[in-house]
Design a protein around this nucleic acid. Structure first.
Length: 873
RNA sequence: GCGGGCGUGAUGGAAUGGUAGACAUACGGGACUUAAAAUCCCGGGGAGGUAUCUCCGUGUGGGUUCAAGUCCCACCGCCCGCACCA
């Protein structure tokens, strides 16, 4: 039944038609009073930078497959979308083009929403919001005030990371290799009074709960563990010998190796240590040393490898366990004020940094841990410190103990002693995690709802005065915070005494906005930030999908926020995301001409393959160099425009290709051939559907029972496999299964053409209908068009996932591989669960096996039922 | 330096310890066509000139096992994260 006259499937016509049908039917709007089992799938919402890029397409295609699949499984699926809409780019655009951040942002949202709609994503648009909507950020202000009341917010003067390009403060998490995460500028240190969220209150909880996040990638869990950075050790007081340089009587030190105390050779203070600062006042050389340290900036790789340098303060402390001995006190450039107490004791023999330092300043190197098997008389430290296990020696009452036992014993020892009336040593847990500084000196963010009164101090804005709304009339003609420059916005009356007071002009870090949006989606129009019973009925998010670049920042903040919202009664749970998935990037080849100019893929013609593959400029014919495959970026022009892809191939093909080519956690390379393959498949399915319809009208004939059964079995197996693969997020494997079924059905249709059969045609039709339901989550528009062509009622979007007949998943005959000494020599087709004797007999009677045996009797025969026989000779 | 991951045809990649290379892409051959595109069919890890068949083959070298891409040890290479955390 050739269908030469069949028109090609035309996505440009079909796709908008179905998008409208879904809209009209409100297919994807969900109600919270629906009694069915709930499923919440969420993709990280985008920043409205201007246009959707192909990475978004991949992210949302994955989420959409899950949403549509779970819907087909009969669940009430929440699949919302919104906009992470505050942030610096809007202000930068304002500076560059004179646009207003608000207009710029909402215009971008409009564009991107149109683009997303053209992708046919099953979002519940009725729940859409942008974080810059007053309706959203006013609830965020409410949360802030509740956090403030609950003691989860502090205001303190602190050294902050200052981004000189963006002219704002950055959180530690936002400093990458000493540079601003967005601007790339080298970050400077400044002292400012800042608002902090006390995430460190939850250090232990955030850490220990990671163990329970088994729906998260290990990689992300490890990163979060490392970021929180727990270590247990001893806080130890060293008594200072009296000096006219300072009134201080002791130095507080944190160590994880108290067992090496007998090997202590010096004390080192951070240049930022209060004692260092005090001493510097009367010591110009130390002042210079500290200034030099600050000039070096913060942690970059170069600094990391920088030489250990120190400055002797002239102070000495008593050695706490060696009566009569003292240790010199240095200020050293490798000691961080941010960790522990900002002071350490140096044990050169068992810490590499301390050893480097000791060698440079000719300080004592006293080994106190003896590796197993080493001779205490000859054991010596060369250029490398010994940090391994062993027995303690040279250490009086610790001698002979293992490292861990020695730690316990010395902790007990110092727990009894007193310095300045305090225990000399206390066991303490330290975390690397710092409180989250959220103050930003920017306009386009959520205003911090606080008022500063000279008399009453710092006061929260009363709930009744919310929202604290951003003024529209701001200018961007000078550096700094436009809110601060605004003529009257910050001038308010004190809510307590009524005197003139000043509004806080800092706005919140935009990571605050994204730390609770998933909760707001559960009741986006409610008066309070969340409606706890509703939020709790949806949360935690069953499957969250986004880029690994948020593995620490956003995911950690959100986990903290859930806890803080729990504490303040806005949520009933602590962990916001049950399942987390980090998808790979979309990458593309780069192209560069002789002048070194980057070219867009659309400007390049490619020919040849492998070694002979060449590229030239499509319009001029000039040679083009094919460069490395990299993450798509505007600067290297290795980008494709989703709009253009949708125009040329349709959204379904873009989605299909994004899902088919690589495992979702790995990078996928965008290729023209790949998207064309998707398009070919789309046409094949369309053709197959119409062939099926033609066969249904064909006269009776005979196809064999066996053929029909084989098709039915394959269909059921595929339904099972595709479902399993989607649930396991193995979209590429699901696609492969669909290809296999499609290929088999195409072949079957071809045999029907030569041997017509009513039963065969009916079987084909049933299988095709199933196939369409399997395809629909990935190519939803094609799914609808085919569904309609097949004359099925309603929308494919509402079709149920086909039921699997378990009996059809197993065969009554099985192919059993026959090996001799582990090497494949043949294959048997036997009834399922055949007796061992039969399997053995059949296997031995194979000619290839007999040949390998060469008349000898087998030593052993291993039989794995229904799978394999291994004859051992 | 520490931590995590990965290494399979020309390419992206499949493979509960049990028939390596599913599926796709690229390529080659054929059919259809005046021709091209599209479409359909066939082929394909390497070597032994073809088929049969044999040997080799999942980064390298060892090991465990009847059987290893898969598990263990060592090494090489690549990618990612953290980075003076005491």
């Amino acid at each position: 039944m050739p269908l030469k006259s069949l028109e090609r499937y035309n996505p440009r016509v079909e796709e908008p038609r179905w998008q409208k049908a879904w809209d009209d039917a409100k297919s994807f709007e969900v109600a919270s009073d629906d009694p069915r089992e709930r499923y919440y799938v969420l993709e990280m919402f985008p920043y409205p930078s201007g246009r959707i890029h192909i990475g978004h397409v991949r992210n949302y295609a994955m989420g959409d497959v899950i949403a549509r699949y779970q819907r087909a499984r009969g669940k009430n699926v929440l699949h919302p979308m919104g906009w992470d809409a505050f942030g610096l780019p809007a202000e930068n655009a304002a500076k560059q083009t004179g646009s207003h951040p608000k207009e710029w942002t909402y215009a971008n949202i409009a564009t991107m929403k149109r683009q997303l709609k053209s992708m046919g994503l099953s979002f519940d648009w009725s729940r859409e919001f942008a974080t810059c909507d007053v309706e959203y950020y006013q609830r965020q202000q409410k949360l802030f005030l509740d956090f403030l009341k609950a003691g989860l917010v502090t205001r303190k003067k602190s050294k902050v990371n200052w981004d000189p390009v963006d002219e704002t403060v950055l959180a530690n998490e936002q400093v990458i290799d000493g540079r601003g995460w967005r601007s790339g500028a080298i970050v400077e240190q400044r002292e400012l009074t800042q608002w902090f969220l006390k995430i460190s209150d939850y250090s232990e909880d955030l850490l220990s709960a990671i163990d329970g996040l088994d729906g998260w990638p290990d990689k992300v869990r490890v990163m979060q563990r490392n970021w929180i950075g727990k270590s247990e050790g001893l806080r130890l007081l060293f008594e200072l010998l009296p000096s006219d340089k300072t009134a201080a009587t002791s130095i507080d030190v944190f160590t994880t190796r108290p067992d090496t105390i007998f090997g202590a050779g010096f004390i080192a203070l951070s240049p930022d240590h209060p004692l260092s600062t005090e001493l510097a006042k009367s010591d110009p050389d130390l002042t210079e040393f500290i200034a030099e340290f600050h000039r070096q900036g913060t942690a970059t790789e170069a600094i990391e490898k920088a030489e250990k340098r120190g400055y002797f303060t002239g102070l000495t402390v008593r050695h706490p366990v060696k009566p009569g001995q003292t240790l010199p006190v240095y200020v050293a450039n490798f000691v961080l004020m941010e960790y522990g107490t900002g002071a350490i004791f140096g044990c050169a023999a068992h810490d590499q940094r301390d050893l480097d330092f000791a060698r440079k300043y000719d300080l004592a190197v006293i080994p106190v841990v003896l590796p197993d098997g080493a001779d205490p008389k000859t054991f010596d430290i060369g250029a490398e410190a010994y940090t391994g296990p062993g027995r303690i020696f040279n250490s009086a009452f610790l001698d002979g103990l293992e490292v861990e036992d020695a730690k316990r014993k010395i902790a007990a020892h110092f727990g009894i002693l007193r310095v300045d009336g305090r225990p000399q040593g206390t066991i303490e847990t330290q975390y690397r995690l710092r409180d989250w500084g959220i103050s930003r000196q920017r306009y386009w963010g959520c205003p911090i709802p606080v008022i500063h009164c000279e008399v009453c101090g710092t006061l929260p804005v009363p709930d009744r005065d919310l929202p604290v709304e951003l003024p529209d009339d701001v200018t961007f003609d000078r550096p700094g915070n436009p809110l601060d420059h605004h003529p009257n916005w910050k001038h308010v009356d004190c809510p307590q005494c009524g005197r003139k007071a000043r509004r806080e002009t800092d706005t919140m870090d935009t990571f605050v906005d994204s730390s609770w949006y998933f909760a707001r989606f559960t009741a986006p129009h409610a008066e309070p930030p969340t409606v706890p019973p509703i939020a709790d009925s949806w949360l935690p998010v069953d499957q969250y999908i986004g880029g690994v670049e948020h593995a620490i920042l956003h995911l950690l903040y959100s986990r903290f926020f859930a806890r803080a919202m729990h504490k303040t009664g806005h949520l009933g749970m602590d962990e916001p995301f049950r399942g987390m998935f980090t998808q790979g990037m979309v990458v593309h080849e780069t192209y560069r001409d002789n002048a070194g100019e980057w070219l867009f893929p659309s400007e390049v013609d490619l020919e040849g393959m492998g070694e002979t593959r060449r590229a030239k400029n499509a319009s001029t014919g000039a040679p083009v160099e094919i460069g490395s495959i990299e993450k798509m970026s505007k600067s290297k022009r290795n980008v494709v425009d989703p709009d253009e892809i949708v125009r040329t191939y349709g959204a379904d093909c873009a989605r299909w290709f994004m899902l088919s080519d690589s495992p979702p956690e790995r990078d996928v390379q965008w290729t023209e051939a790949g998207i064309e393959g998707a398009s070919r498949f789309q046409q094949r399915v369309w053709k197959l559907v119409h062939e099926t319809l033609a066969f249904a009208a064909s006269p009776a004939g005979s196809s064999t029972e066996a053929e029909i059964l084989a098709i039915r079995k394959l269909t059921h197996r595929t339904v099972k496999a595709v479902g399993d693969n989607i649930e396991g997020l193995r979209f590429n494997s699901a696609v492969a299964q669909i290809y296999e079924l499609t290929n088999a059905l195409t072949k079957f249709a071809a045999t029907l053409e030569t041997v017509p059969s009513t039963a065969g045609a009916a079987e084909l039709r049933a299988s095709i209908e199933t196939l369409i339901v399997l395809i629909a989550p990935m190519m939803p528009h094609l799914g609808e068009s085919a569904w309609q062509a097949l004359g099925k009622p309603g929308l494919a979007a509402d079709a149920r996932w086909p039921a699997v007949d378990a009996d059809l998943l197993v065969d009554d005959t099985v192919a059993i591989a026959v090996q001799v000494n582990g090497k494949l020599r043949g294959e048997l087709t036997l009834p399922k669960a055949a007796a061992r004797e039969l399997v053995e007999k059949e296997a031995l009677s194979l000619e290839a096996v007999a040949r390998m045996l060469d008349g000898k009797a087998p030593k052993k025969i291993i039989i794995v039922p229904d799978r394999i026989v291994n004859v051992v000779v």
